[in-house]
Every structure is written in C-alpha cells, then in structure tokens.
Nucleic acid binder design. Structure first.
Lengths: 251, 251
DNA sequence: GACATTTGTTCATATATCGCACAAAGTGGA
DNA sequence: TCCACTTTGTGCGATATATGAACAAATGTC
C-alpha cells in the first residue's frame, strides 16, 4: 500500500473512539490526547466530528459516546455470517447441556465473543457479543492459540500480560506452550477456574471444510455444578457433534 | 463549531463502516462507493486504511470487516455505566418472570438494546446488545417515543418506514400518536404481536432522579404463554419495582 | 473474439488537515 | 485575591488528503 492510500485522519479518529472504555467513560480533550498520544488539536477535531455526527455527546467539557457508536460493531455482527450460522447450534447446545454456550474468534491476544446462548449468569462478568477475554486463560482462547503456528502463539503470549486471576491461573509461558500442544493433540481445551474462581469451561475448535480453524465453541459451567474433570465426559460429545455439523456450513 | 473543526476523512470512514451490513457482508470498492455516495478513490482509501489497521480484510477484490471492529462498540458498552447498572436488575426480572428482560435506548427511529437477560429465545431474530428494532412497533420504542415532545415523536414517525410486520402492526401515524398519548398517561406500553407473530411484550420507562427518561425496560413473552391483556397484570408490578429501584442509580 | 461496460488505480492540483505556538479561560492552593 | 498550573481555543505555514479525469484491467455480452 502506498503512503497516500492511508487516511490518517480516519485512523486517528478510530484511535480516539477506542480511548473510551470502562475506566474512561467520559473524556476531556486533554485526557483523550494523553491516552491516544495524539495532538490536542487533532483529538479535539476528532471528538467534535464524532459529536457533530451524533456518535458522541459534548457538554462543553467532557465527551461521552452515544449508542449510535454501536452501529459500527453492529455492521460487523450483521455482516458476518458466522454469528447467525452458529446461533441456533449454540441455543441447542445450551439447551442440552443446561449451561451457557458461546462462540468466539481471536483478535490479537484476546478472545472476542461473536455469539452466545446463556442459560443463567454464572460469572461475575457479563459476557455478550463483543466482549473480550484474555486468550491465555480462557478455554476458547487456548483452542484458538493452539491452532496458530507455535511461533505465532509464543509471540502472542509474549505480548500478553500473563496475570494470575485466580490461584489456579497458569502464567508460565513454557507451561502454556506445553498446554497448547496438549490441546492441539486432544482437540479440546478445559479450563478449571483459571479466569474466575468457581467457573470451568470446555472448548473445541470450529473448522471449515478446508480444515482451517475459524472460531471456537465452548460450554461454561459453575465448578460447583460440574467438576472440571467431568466436563469432557459430559459435554465433549455434544461439542464434537456440533463441530461436525457446523464444519460444512462455515466459510 | 467551525468548518475546520470537522475531520471529513474520519466522517467518510465511519460512513464506509456503516455501509457493511446484513445484505452487504462483503463490499467491493465500487459497491461501497455506490452505497455511501462517496467517490471511488475516497472509499478505496478508507477501506485500505481499515485493512491496514486490521479492522477489515482485503482479498484483492472484496473487503470484509474483522472482529476488531467490535472494539468500537465495546468502547461504548464498557464506557457507559447504564448497561452494567441495569444488568443485575434484568437478571432478577428475567428470573422472577421466567421471561426475557431487556433495556434499551433510542437512536434516531430505532431502539438499541444495551443490556439483556434472556431466558430462552422466543423470537426468530436474536437480540443482543447493539441489536436494533424499529421504535414504532416495539414496546420499548413506544415508551421512548412517548417520552419525547409530541412534535419530535411525530417527526420520528415521519422518518420511519411504517411497515406492517404482522397483520396486527399499527402503521397509521395518527393512530400511533394516539397510542403514544395513552402510553404516556398509563406509564407503560404493551405490544401484541406487532413485531412478530407470537410475541408480546410490556415496557416501562427508566427515569433518573430528575425525572428524565434515560432508557426503557421490558419483558417479552411468547403469546402462547401469556396473552397480551395479562401482561400488565403479571409483569407490571415487578417492572415498576425495578423502575423505582433504578431511579436513584442512573445518570 | 470484439465491443461495451464496469471496476480498480494513478495522477496533478485544489483544498483541507495537522501540529505548533500562542492566547484565553478555568482551577486550585496559599 | 493572587499566582501558578492545567486545560482549552485559534491562527498559520507545512503537509496530507480529496477530487475528477484519464488510463488500465477485468468482466460481461453478443
């Protein structure tokens, strides 16, 4: 791509949108400038543009995003066939298992939920399409990382802050690489309370007809209800069935 | 705002993202140009920028959005306190009612779901945060339109394509305005299979301490399970309770 | 296979944006 | 109240981008 085929004003604006987040629901011009590393004048123009277009509100001091911004993500969710294709299968899985079932894809070092059928909320965090979890300690993340060439998986882990969310979280890169090998071999990943105490899950890769891994499917359950070692026994057969059924339907 | 405080390259890029959608999951440069009304050269630059930043994939002919684009909507969902505040109340509502409960806000002529606790899927469409429905034929839409000054509500209806999704859909603007008056007076809205046959719902406005309507709450149920006239009797008390409990917590 | 049409790319140039420097307006503490 | 500090607004030259036309490539049609 040539230098002149890049619209830096657009790129800067997207960076400004991403500056908003849990810790930053309202941003002043100076704050947004600090977070993005962009010039104040530039950030100001981007924010005023967002405000003018109705993507943000401005009270003269702080900017906040409006729900109109959801149109951007909605463009993806409704444009991508994957969520619509897997949804009925997730509903069925969730129904049969009596637990939540989800599908996700990898975006950098994070897992992004693209579809979900929830039975009841068992996690303190509320997952929905667009939600993100660190890949290294999520069952779908393990499956998706295992599908990458090892060098690339290693590079992803290198870019991740491997923090121990619970006493059971695996944070040693070598141990994780070893775990990814095991996941690749056995074709599924089990997480035992590595993300949150009391929560276990099992995931399988979702492959297309050419054998490429395009997403991951999982079932999550409260540890009190199903102990981690039982997960495979109870849910792996139905996950495998779904995996096979979806194989000719994706991509 | 001055002319030069508007970054048109950014605005054009956002328009390009929104061009993607259910009917347009993959766009060529020419198609995107037609949909947006922008020059082919401009659209090409925007798309190449998205691709360069990882928000889109390019196979040399078609562009598709990547899940990275969900970061933009996620910036809103995690930045806005409303979804996090109402979620536990929706969970509780859903549990008590044995039905799905949702919260939404108005964006133009559409209702945008910002949080949801689903019991089981009763609609053919799958609703999730970011999902949109036309306001005129949804219970939360009625409640939110009723909260606007009548002139503004009339203007919204004027901008909406009032189509009859089912034989029961109200499509006459005057009849709708009349219905909005009734909703305003009684403090809730009931929809009887106007959006989809077999689906009923009841909604109440969610107000902040100053009495401003900031969102709507609803409970949806299969018509086979709960007839529309019973909705108010069965669910209005718990919706009102939730409305009162949330009032001091929002905004 | 030749023609017409659509699509993608390049280019020159008119136009708009960027980032800097400075001015103005708030903020908070002594 | 004043001063120091932070934040926001603005004018301007340098730089980057949009435009529309021209060309090239691909596609569809007869």
């Amino acid at each position: 791509m040539r230098e002149t085929d890049f619209v830096s004003g657009f790129a800067r604006g997207l960076k400004v949108i991403e500056a908003f987040g849990e810790a930053q629901p309202r941003l002043s011009i100076a704050e947004a400038s600090k977070l993005t590393g962009l010039d104040r004048a530039t950030v100001r123009r981007s924010l005023l543009t967002l405000s003018e277009l109705g993507y943000a509100d401005y009270d003269g001091k702080f900017f906040t995003l409006t729900p109109k911004i959801l149109r951007l993500g909605h463009a993806y969710l409704s444009a991508t066939p994957l969520p619509a294709i897997v949804q009925p299968y997730l509903d069925q899985l969730s129904e049969r298992a009596g637990q939540s079932a989800s599908a996700s894809v990898l975006d950098g070092t994070e897992v992004v939920y693209v579809a979900r059928a929830s039975q009841r909320r068992v996690m303190s965090i509320n997952l929905m399409p667009g939600s993100r979890l660190p890949a290294y300690c999520a069952s779908m993340g393990r499956v998706l990382l295992a599908a990458l060439p090892e060098a690339q998986a290693r590079e992803m882990l290198g870019r991740t802050e491997l923090k121990a969310n619970t006493p059971r979280t695996k944070t040693d890169p070598e141990e994780l690489i070893e775990e990814l090998r095991r996941v690749r071999e056995q074709g599924y990943a089990v997480i035992d309370q590595e993300l949150e105490l009391g929560l276990c899950s099992i995931a399988v890769p979702l492959m297309n007809a050419r054998g490429q891994v395009v997403a991951a499917l999982n079932i999550g359950a409260p540890a009190a209800h199903v102990a981690a070692p039982e997960l495979a026994e109870r849910y792996l057969p139905m996950l495998k069935e779904t995996q096979v059924a979806l194989r000719p339907l994706v991509q």
